[in-house]
């Protein structure tokens, strides 16, 4: 189980690197979308691993709220680029 989590952290490092090296804002947004999904899935895995119900609930809420926030941010940035 530990090795699965380490592999997940490695997968998480790729979009972080991408967000650091690319200057285009939409590429950064893509990296953020990837990170938001990955972090909440990792939280879910850890909650199941520890059999902790409260972390699991928070993970699901963060999963849905993070994506909603991402859509809001995408629309705001689009308005900025156009104006």
């Amino acid at each position: 189980m530990d090795s699965i989590l380490i592999a997940m952290i490695l997968a998480l490092l790729i979009p972080i690197y991408e967000a650091w090296q690319d200057d285009n804002i939409w590429q950064k947004m893509l990296a953020f979308a990837s990170i938001a999904t990955k972090t909440s899935i990792m939280m879910l895995v850890i909650s199941v691993l520890r059999d902790d119900w409260s972390i699991g609930v928070v993970a699901v809420i963060i999963l849905s709220v993070g994506e909603a926030g991402l859509m809001l941010l995408a629309h705001l940035i689009k308005q900025c680029r156009l104006g």
Binding site: M29, A33, L63, E67, L70, M71, A74, H75, K78
Partner: peptide, 25 residues
């Protein structure tokens, strides 16, 4: 709930990101 959220929101998110980045990009 996590599976349903993933299936619905990720699809919508992909659409929204594509729409925003192609019209403003």
């Amino acid at each position: 709930l996590a599976i349903i959220t993933l299936a619905i929101w990720n699809t919508v998110l992909g659409y929204v990101l594509a729409y925003c980045s192609s019209s403003g990009g």
